[in-house]
């Protein structure tokens, strides 16, 4: 049952990604991209990564779709006389070759949930799982690692978000109001 659902979700992700690439209308492409983000968020939940799934659903499917929609309102969209983009066969061949080359690394990954995978047996992982609650009094080990053990990294990320956001706001506001 779960396997069938996962295969259906994967098919949906691939179909939505392909639709995003080939649809000629930008609006349709944005909608397809939202569907792609939402289905990949559900896949994250299936893979026991609810933190990532929540981020993908909120940012990828929610906020990004709205920002894309606002952006395409500002651009001149081409008149849509056909549904699909004419596919450049050479570009498609390059993209396919890249996908195949990257897919060759998939076989090197451990199986999902494999107890003997290096990630699960590593000393660092077992240290976090054993002592995270005692040392941080936090039940979610992901949060403990992010905010306590690697708090300095997270602070750097917060500063990156701050600088990127403020930089963008300055540029956009100058363009609009300046």
């Amino acid at each position: 049952m779960t396997a069938a659902l996962q295969i259906a979700l994967l098919a949906l992700v691939v179909a939505a990604a392909a639709a995003t690439a080939v649809l000629r209308s930008v609006l349709s492409a944005v909608v397809a991209f939202g569907a792609y983000s939402l289905s990949i968020a559900i896949i994250w939940v299936f893979l026991r990564a609810p933190d990532v799934g929540l981020t993908e659903a909120a940012v990828g499917a929610g906020v990004m779709t709205v920002l894309f929609l606002l952006t395409i309102v500002k651009t001149d969209s081409p008149t849509v006389e056909r549904t699909f983009e004419q596919i450049d066969l050479r570009a498609a061949a390059v993209a396919l070759a890249l996908v195949l080359a990257l897919s060759s690394t998939v076989f090197a990954l451990p199986a999902v949930g494999d107890a003997g995978s290096p990630v699960a047996t590593d000393d660092v992982t077992s240290y976090y799982l054993d002592s995270a609650y005692e040392e941080t009094h936090v039940e979610n080990v992901v949060t403990a690692v992010l905010a306590a053990y690697r708090g300095f990294d997270t602070m750097g990320e917060a500063v990156v978000v701050y600088s990127a956001g403020v930089g963008l706001l300055v540029v956009l506001n100058r363009e609009v109001f300046g």
Binding site: V63, L67, V73, V161, G165, L169, L172, V176
Partner: peptide, 18 residues
């Protein structure tokens, strides 16, 4: 931080439309 950036980007990108 994140909430402020999301709202700020939303307003900035929406501003000037039309």
């Amino acid at each position: 931080i994140v909430a402020g950036i999301v709202t700020g980007l939303f307003f900035s990108i929406a501003a000037g439309v039309g």
